[in-house]
Design a protein around this nucleic acid. Structure first.
Lengths: 247, 247
DNA sequence: TGCAAAATTAATGTCAGACATTTAAAGTTT
DNA sequence: AAACTTTAAATGTCTGACATTAATTTTGCA
């Protein structure tokens, strides 16, 4: 397995890596208490400050949690899907914004992944998922909605679609892809016309979900992807011709 | 956006969250230097030790890097796909092992995602990808190979398939799904017969990739998924009947 | 003058020890 | 027995010092 082979010269990294490996290999199990900071500093022969820096690193990855008080200490954390998702979203968002990933590439990835859910979602969707999609649709249809609000409802719609697959692993993996697209989508100014087009596709997809028509869900997603790509190209092309509007 | 709404009572968490938000919102840009630890401790009115714990948290998420020496300091890091992948793999692996996700659920997610790549991979694959797949196949065909080795080659095969899609975002998102399955796969003891079956499916997929037959790639993956699920069910059923062998 | 060696400096990395705060458990009193 | 108090053990924070690193400046000599 890949056990972070980075040669970290500073002690706190080494200690963090050491404990991390113990957790990954199962030497330390969930909810087990680590030795106290004083004991760890004795074991590793470093100061308490150094141990603490190592523990903070692990806490940042949700690998441990700490508790104060008499029976407190550092405990191996059971990573929850929620915590993992939150981390993944942060990382994915920054990854896209910092590596000038093209809108095209990100969009393609997102819809490809979402189509992967279509068969499962169509088969397993509950009424709650249909309702969530309908609510998002209603929000998106409001004429006075801001662009940011429109995008947020868009995310809600697609997350409902993904969650309908009833597979938490799938939901987790896709959270990053769907949410990380939001800042890129926010760069687009949606005209009333383009909003109508998107909402129309969403409506088709929602209908297909209701009738459990997997192929139609996938087809709707493909159509939506094409229109989104076209829209983005148009917006970016116009912006290039006429570089900056008023600041 | 979701900006880690956790009410962290300790100062180092608050400071870390503060700086993290500044990076996410673009107040601090890539390669920009943060104030020195002494300056930060003055700004936030805390000791240097506390600031350092905050910085270590950010470093653990690859948000910053630090450099020693006269012109050193903490710099906003450009998160690389590599670093993000490594983190995602660690998180995904622990997530699966700690939440007793069933083999079935994980397997379903993995193949669903992989099928999402099939059309793109078939269309864009280069000779290098075919070669990587072929190499993995050759490795898997060796009769004296250990189970762990067989699984490692399996991962290599599927990663080549994913990378062939030529979409770095897709590769990043799927890295977690593919790699995190490995420990679960390692729980299975592959008989010679089941290995042959898997290799045969892989061969079909490789052939379909060569001829750029997207539908055949997807079909091959579906077949492989079904066989893997059946195999796992068999193995686990036998293990339940006859709980522990020699330790 | 030009260049190499040495000193300077500014930053992070580490240490030691102290005190503050939190929390559970043990002890005490009514 | 219940409520209160004390104790102890742990993390959280602060202070000040020294070690180490690496860029920059100064010095010294050919």
């Amino acid at each position: 397995m890949n056990t972070t082979p980075q040669t970290a010269s500073d002690l706190s990294s080494q200690i963090a890596a050491n404990i991390r490996d113990a957790i990954i290999k199962g030497v330390l199990i969930v909810d087990e208490r680590l030795p106290s900071e004083a004991e760890l500093s004795a074991q590793f022969n470093v100061s308490r400050a150094t141990v603490r820096e190592a523990l903070k690193r692990l806490a940042a990855q949700s690998l441990i949690r700490t508790q104060r008080g008499a029976t407190g200490g550092a405990f191996v954390n059971r990573i929850s899907f929620e915590a993992a998702q939150a981390q993944q979203i942060t990382t994915s968002t920054l990854l896209l914004s910092m590596n000038d990933v093209s809108f095209e590439t990100a969009c393609e990835a997102r819809f490809a992944l979402e189509r992967a859910c279509a068969p499962l979602s169509a088969a397993r969707r509950q009424d709650s998922h249909l309702k969530a999609m309908q609510d998002a649709l209603d929000t998106q249809s409001a004429p006075a909605l801001s662009d940011a609000g429109f995008c947020a409802a868009d995310v809600a719609f697609h997350r409902a679609l993904v969650d309908a697959a009833g597979n938490p692993v799938l939901s987790y993996q896709l959270a990053g892809a769907v949410e990380a697209m939001q800042p890129l989508m926010n760069m687009i100014t949606f005209t009333a016309w383009s909003r109508d087009a998107i909402v129309a596709r969403h409506r088709e997809i929602a209908t297909a979900m209701t009738t459990r028509n997997a192929a139609a869900v996938a087809a709707g997603l493909t159509l939506l992807e094409q229109e989104t790509q076209t829209l983005a190209r148009t917006v970016f092309a116009r912006r290039t011709k006429q570089p900056n509007a008023a600041p």
